[in-house]
Every structure is written in C-alpha cells, then in structure tokens.
Write a protein that binds this DNA or RNA. Structure first.
Length: 302
DNA sequence: TGCGATGATTAGGT
DNA sequence: ACCTAATCATCGCA
C-alpha cells in the first residue's frame, strides 16, 4: 500500500475514531457474528496459525469414539481443514484490502470535493461507516459459508457411520459365542461387556451396540439365525463337555445350572424359551439328529 | 453395481 | 442408564 494513502487512512481514523482495519470485529457486538467467530475459532479456522485445527480434530475424533488412531484419515481431515482455513484467510484479507482501498478512494474524492465545498467530519464518518457496513456484511457471508464448509467436512470425516468397519472375524466369533451361550438372557453385565470389549479389541459401547443389534435382529428373524445358533451351540457344547468332564471327576453332587426364564425382550411377552431350545439343539447335536423347527418362518414361536 | 449384512445413531420408553 | 425399534450409511460379495 502506498504511504500517501496510508496517511490518509490514518487521518480518517483520527477524525472519525473508527478502526479501519478491524471495524467489523469490534463495532457491533452482533450475536450471530460472535457465534460464527467462536465456531471458526473452535474449529481452528480462525485464530493462531498452527495446532488449533489438530486439537479440534482430535477432540471430534474422540467424541466419535474411535479408539484406533486412523492417522491417514486424520491427516486428510486436517489437510482439508487447512485448505478451508487458507481460503478463508486469503478471502478475508482480500475483503479488508478492498475495504481499505475503497475507503481511501472515497476519501480522495471527498478531498477533491472539499476544495469546492465544505465537508464536515460528520459526513466523512457517515461515508466510512456505510462502507464498513457493506464490507462487514460481505465478511459475514464469508464466515457463514466457511462455517458451512467446516460442518460438511466434519460430517464427512468424523461421522462414525461413514467410517464403519466390520469387526474382525475373531471379534464376531467371540461376541456370537457369548450371545448364543447366553441366549436365554443375552444381556451382558457391565463387567462382561468390559471383558468382551477387551477380548475383541473394541470399546464397551461397541459391545453394547453389537448386542443391541444382535438381539433385535435375532428376534426379528430367528429362522435366519438358526444355522448360526446351531453352530455356536455345538461350539459351546464342546467346551462345556470338556468342563463337564473335569467337573464330574471332582464331584457328582453339583447343583443344576441356572434356571432359564427365556429370552424376553423388554416390555414384551417374548418367551423364546431358547434355553430349552438350545438344550434340544445340543442333544440333537450329540445324537446326530437335526433340531426340530421351533419357530415359524416369520420368526414367531410355533 | 445391486443388495444383504452390519455397525452406529436416533427417538422414545422404562 | 439402558433398552427396543427404526433408520442411516458403509461394507463386501456375487
């Protein structure tokens, strides 16, 4: 910027008491503008050059409940965010420069006019504030669209649904084993969930999600899961047989296993009596027979 | 590429 | 807080 113009701007500043550079930020305490500013600051788009963005990304990733450090996606997110940030800053600078230049231009015109007519400081102030209002509304739009872009970016990268990965085969195996061996009451306790989570290398809430999904899907279409149920029943039968063999050697007077009340969904009379079903499955497994169908094709009990 | 499977989210209930 | 049920969005296979 040319020194001559700059001195003019300083002159305006002195005369009007307006801050030319940052008029938009400090003049009206507009709540919406403040919201936008706060959000941009929180997302690391506005504010200090480095660190903010990654902090926001890390916080968001933590909120999304991602235990592994998917650093590839992270850096991708950061790259996109800094792209937005760069665009935002260059645009902002462009607007400020344009605002200043335009102000200078108007001031020059007023100066020339001052040779032919008297110009009051009031008039100058009015002109300058008009210009600033115009430019700050443009700036508001910029901030708004930047916020939108960040929100879209966030939803694309940080929405857990978008980066869903199937659990490992082992994990699914472990979960299924638990589910089918507790079919009469497939509601693991907090401790059980923690243990399953540990075994499967997933979070406790993922275990809860899995059981929630499994219960509802099993209930909806038991027929579909029959084969799977048989498979895991056989599997647990083998381990149970080992355990039983060991137990029998110790004592013959063991109390019977826990009484089963049946798989009952909350608030619903939905007695599967699946413990009995499982026992049938097991005995059939051992005798080589195939279990009699216990459920109708629509999933209801016969 | 279509479609079923599947993990995550949401709304509404207790 | 935890559940069910519906739904969303992606995965993975034929």
């Amino acid at each position: 910027m040319k020194p001559a113009l700059f001195s003019v701007l300083c002159e305006i500043k002195e005369k009007t008491g307006l801050s030319i550079r940052g008029a938009q930020e400090e003049d009206p305490p507009d709540p919406q503008l403040m919201r936008l500013d706060n959000m941009l600051l929180a997302e690391g788009v506005a504010g200090p050059e480095k660190g903010g963005g990654s902090a926001a990304a890390a916080a968001a990733a933590a909120a999304a409940g991602s235990p592994t450090d998917n650093s590839i996606e992270h850096s991708d997110y950061r790259a996109k965010l800094s792209q937005i940030r760069q665009i935002y800053h260059t645009e902002l600078e462009k607007y400020e420069q344009a605002c200043n230049e335009f102000t200078t231009h108007v001031m020059n015109l007023l100066r020339e006019q001052s040779r032919t007519r008297p110009i009051s400081p009031k008039e100058i102030e009015r002109m300058v504030s008009i210009i600033h209002r115009k430019f700050s509304s443009i700036q508001m739009q910029l901030k708004q669209s930047t916020c939108e872009a960040v929100m879209i970016l966030r939803s694309r990268f940080l929405d857990a649904r978008r980066k869903r990965r199937n659990f490992s085969k082992q994990a699914t195996e472990i979960l299924n084993e638990y589910f089918y061996s507790h079919l009469s009451n497939p509601y693991p306790s907090e401790e059980a969930k923690e243990e399953l989570a540990k075994k499967c290398s997933i979070t406790v809430s993922q275990v809860s999600n899995w059981f929630g999904n499994k219960r509802i899907r099993y209930k909806k279409n038991i027929g579909k899961f029959q084969e799977e149920a048989n498979l895991y029943a056989a599997k647990t039968a083998v381990t149970a047989a080992h355990a039983a063999a060991a137990a029998v050697q110790n004592s013959q007077t063991n109390s019977p296993t826990t009484p089963n009340s049946g798989f009952q969904m909350k608030d619903e009379e939905f007695q599967l009596d699946s413990a009995e079903n499982k026992n049938t499955l097991l005995t059939n497994m051992f005798t080589g027979g195939y279990p009699a169908p216990c459920y109708q094709s629509d999933g209801r009990i016969q």
